[in-house]
Design a protein around this nucleic acid. Structure first.
Lengths: 254, 254
DNA sequence: CAGTGGTCTAGACCACCGT
DNA sequence: CGGTGGTCTAGACCACTGC
């Protein structure tokens, strides 16, 4: 440790900062508590605000912090587990925790979705907009692509393009039954419209869940749902619905 | 631009930049092609390098770009779909595409894992280190926590702490059979050791898949696997293994 | 209105890669 | 070694929130 600091960091400042802050969060802060503002934190740690922000970004990505412009930075509650694979709630919106139909339009599906649907590339499909609310907070925004062939009895002259029509499509779709589903999860960033529904800024990290619903030997519908990556933990229950609690992670104020 | 830009954007520069670059990627670049370096791109678009980098970060997050220090920025291939739910490959490493045991230690599990295991908090467990390789590329690094009770026949005096012991634990575990699994997916950032295995920098975005393996009425083991979020799309096949191709997304050089 | 986080700049130096 | 992306700085201004 003389001048020759072979102890030299190698570790970026923001990474070290993140570690220090993370430990402070565990020991000195309660959920919901607001942190000092960025300028003060940066000064306190002797770094530029940009560096401090890099550490905060990481912690927000990991679901430890929540930042809101004009308000401040608060300690986030543990991520909520949202069930994705329980099958029955997927297009019947269940009871308290469910999908809320917002609207419905008719247009051609984007190319990646088209590739999964059994329709001609220029054939318009019903596009149902839904959001999912858990514990009072919006956690996901979805676009559900439904070929007309999947909902043959839907009155073609249905003019309402709002929640009413959305509900009609989902109801008709439900009558088809379900043979199975293929699902994939990947990281994405929120489009402007999704961000608005999720109460986040555009570009916020989201988990994109793409589901193909199979019925009668074909693809009945395709759903592209974007979940808030900061607040959600997606759960897939192959057997039972065991909740993963996080004891030993409780945080108390100092 | 006119001095009075009533056309004022409202849209952040980096967001607009990202859109422009994204479209250019679709039309003017082939997979694997290298982009101009950051300083030149920034100059070309008339923005500071930091702003340009913000756009590139987004595109990398979405799996469109790949950046390597000392090398350059290249156009990434479409994300590879990795099956997560096929059950049989999960602790028998299958054939060509599988989990490779790297090592095995014995220690106490971290608190969140402990909460899912049926063991005393101070009871050491086997911790198997494995990596998953798909198409020649490492896609995931895993820590598999196995209580001694799950592998009773493992010779206690097994001294090797390397791949050999790891294989022994997995083999013994496999004899237990499997009643079911609970799984969750969330966003995280790579720890230093995971980052090394995944050939990424620490802090890189990863999809953390936590699996609880159920056998004989209890939790036989817990796996925490971190998948590269930039290159992976996790697939969950509830029925069949239909691959989602991306036609119409093919990119060709100009 | 004052205070917060979000965006942006124009530099500088460092760590790493290939030649 | 030169060139790349990665880190860091010290400012500035903007957009939003709440009082």
């Amino acid at each position: 440790m003389g001048t020759t600091q072979l102890e030299s960091v190698q570790e970026p400042k923001y990474w070290h900062l993140k570690t220090v802050l993370s430990e402070a969060l565990d020991s000195d802060f309660a959920v919901g508590e607001i942190l000092p503002n960025e300028r003060e934190l940066a000064a306190r740690f002797g770094v530029a605000r940009a560096t401090l922000r890099q550490a905060l970004e990481q912690l927000e990505l990991e679901g430890r912090l929540q930042r809101r412009r004009g308000v401040g930075t608060t300690v986030a509650p543990p991520r909520v587990g949202v069930a994705v694979s329980t099958a029955q709630h997927d297009w019947t919106g269940g009871a308290d925790e469910a999908w809320q139909p917002i609207g419905c339009t008719t247009a051609t599906a984007p190319a990646p979705v088209l590739a999964m649907l059994d329709v001609e590339s220029d054939e318009p499909v019903h596009i149902v907009r839904r959001i999912r609310v858990t514990q009072g907070q919006p956690v996901a925004a979805e676009l559900l692509y439904v070929p007309s062939a999947s909902v043959p009895e839907l009155s073609a002259i249905e003019t309402s393009s709002g929640a009413a029509r959305a509900r009609s499509v989902v109801r008709e779709l439900h009558r088809l039954g379900l043979d199975g589903q293929d699902r994939s999860v990947e990281l994405g960033s929120a489009r402007a419209d999704d961000a608005k529904e999720l109460d986040r800024l555009p570009g916020a990290p989201v988990l994109v869940v793409t589901t193909r619903y199979l019925a009668a030997g074909g693809t009945a519908a395709v759903s592209v749902a974007t979940y808030r990556a900061d607040t959600c933990r997606l759960t897939f229950g192959d057997s039972g619905d065991l909740e993963i609690s996080h004891p030993g992670q409780e945080r108390h104020a100092s």
